[in-house]
Amino acid sequence: MARMCTSKEWAIILCTLSMCVVGSLAGVPGVPSGWKAAHATFYGGSNAQGTMGGACGYGNLYNTGYGLETAALSSTLFNNGKTCGACYEMFCNYRQQSRWCYKAQPHIKVTATNLCPANWNRPTNRGGWCNPPRVHFDLPQPMFIKMARYVGGIVPVAYRRVPCVKKGGVKFTMNGNPWFNLILISNVAGPGDIKAVAVKGSKQKSWTSARQNWGQKWEVKQKLQGQALSFRLTSGSGKVLVLYNAVPRTWRFGSTYMARSNWKGL
């Protein structure tokens, strides 16, 4: 999480937060139509190594293609991992905080890959930045400083949901054992998030619903080895994508396979 702020900085922060509490339900200066108000901090250090892994299960974010353009979400947005993979655009709201936000208000885009946990030992407006019902983004430090000064610690932002742009098709990483399949779904374009998954082996007549294990890891408790696997994915907005034979019959545990297609648009 971000560093502790000085007493002078706290005075500015608390003033800003009071505007945010009202602005979460009403108009906030500097927040355009179609955007929403929130706040952002940073974590992971200057090299962002502390942001690798995370509650979505993507593992090494460089290897899975997410890199530094990521965010940890407060639980209000995280939705028990169902929002993993969603993409957001944001900028530091200079009209709310001219001391820490850049006047040009450069925009950044990030993918949700982690949870920013609540800190019940601190009040919502004094360190418990990710406590419900706050909407909050904890960013890798290199992303934070693209839109705000490092010394700011916490800044007001305007954000909106945007389509995810990814290279190639949806990816499926197979783990588990012959009777327990744990499937990581990543590199999801368009809506980015997945709320339901069904799997069908080439030897099966019907679809089997997968159960969310954690993040974007889904489990299927039946023998799937030796079968080509098709997937039916449902996004948080209800869009459905069916990927036939996305994983070949010769698949092995520990390997990742890319489907031939992906979603487009929200």
Rank of each mutant, 00 (worst) to 15 (best):
V28N: 12
W129C: 00
T83V: 10
P117L: 07
C101H: 07
A37D: 05
V151Q: 15
V31I: 15
T70D: 04
A26V: 14
D138Q: 01
E89S: 12
P29F: 11
F42M: 03
L77P: 05
G23H: 11
W120R: 08
C92E: 01
V28H: 13
I145H: 07
P133W: 08
T70R: 05
G81M: 12
L25T: 14
Q105L: 06
A104L: 12
Y102Q: 11
A72E: 04
A71Y: 04
N125I: 08
G85W: 14
W35I: 07
P123C: 04
G152Q: 07
R126E: 05
G65L: 05
F137I: 01
Q49A: 13
N80R: 09
D138I: 01
N93C: 04
Y88R: 09
A148R: 03
P117E: 08
Y150C: 06
E69C: 04
N63H: 09
E89Y: 05
T83W: 12
N121P: 02
G81R: 11
N47H: 14
G34W: 08
A37F: 10
M147P: 02
V21Y: 13
M143Y: 00
F144I: 02
Y66F: 08
M19F: 14
N93H: 00
Y88A: 10
K82F: 15
A55W: 09
T124W: 04
R149A: 08
N80P: 03
T51Q: 04
A71T: 14
K103S: 15
P142R: 01
K103H: 12
G152V: 09
W100G: 04
I145A: 05
C116K: 01
H39Q: 08
G53E: 10
T76F: 07
M143H: 00
L17A: 09
C101D: 05
Y150H: 14
G44Q: 03
N121K: 12
P132S: 12
K146M: 06
N47F: 05
G23Y: 09
K36L: 13
N63Y: 12
G152K: 09
R126S: 06
L115M: 10
G30K: 10
M90Q: 02
L77I: 14
P32W: 09
N131W: 04
G153S: 10
P142E: 01
W35E: 09
A104C: 06
G50P: 11
Q141N: 03
I108Q: 02
C84I: 12
H107F: 05
C56E: 10
S24N: 13
G53T: 08
S46I: 12
P132R: 14
P29R: 15
V31N: 07
G65I: 04
S24P: 04
G152M: 11
F137Q: 00
R122G: 00
P140A: 02
C56P: 11
A40V: 01
T124C: 03
K109A: 06
H107I: 03
C84R: 13
Y102G: 12
G57Y: 08
L77H: 10
T51N: 07
K103P: 07
C130L: 02
G67L: 01
M147D: 01
P117A: 09
A37Y: 08
Y58H: 08
